[in-house]
């Protein structure tokens, strides 16, 4: 049932109840081992992704490395 909504990277997204963060990331084509997630402002430890259940109104920020870097 897709009746729960969260905000991820600024966009409202409908997700299944009781979905874990790890499953959510995989569903979006992301490897949980290569992203960092802030949940309601707090940076999460990687080990918690599998057990963390998404809840209504949660605000997620998902970031990862991109090419970039040097100042020149």
């Amino acid at each position: 049932m897709m009746n729960m909504k969260i905000i991820c990277n600024g966009a409202k997204i409908a997700v299944e109840d009781e979905l874990s963060l790890a499953m959510f990331l995989r569903g979006k084509g992301l490897d949980p081992d290569t992203v960092a997630v802030a949940c309601d402002g707090a940076i999460l430890a990687r080990e918690t992704y599998a057990d963390l259940r998404l809840r209504e109104g949660m605000v997620l920020e998902v970031v990862r490395f991109v090419g970039g870097g040097a100042s020149c």
Partner: peptide
């Protein structure tokens, strides 16, 4: 060196 950016969920 690498940079950190928000993931574009529609086009990872």
């Amino acid at each position: 060196t690498v940079a950190l950016r928000r993931v574009d969920l529609n086009d990872p």
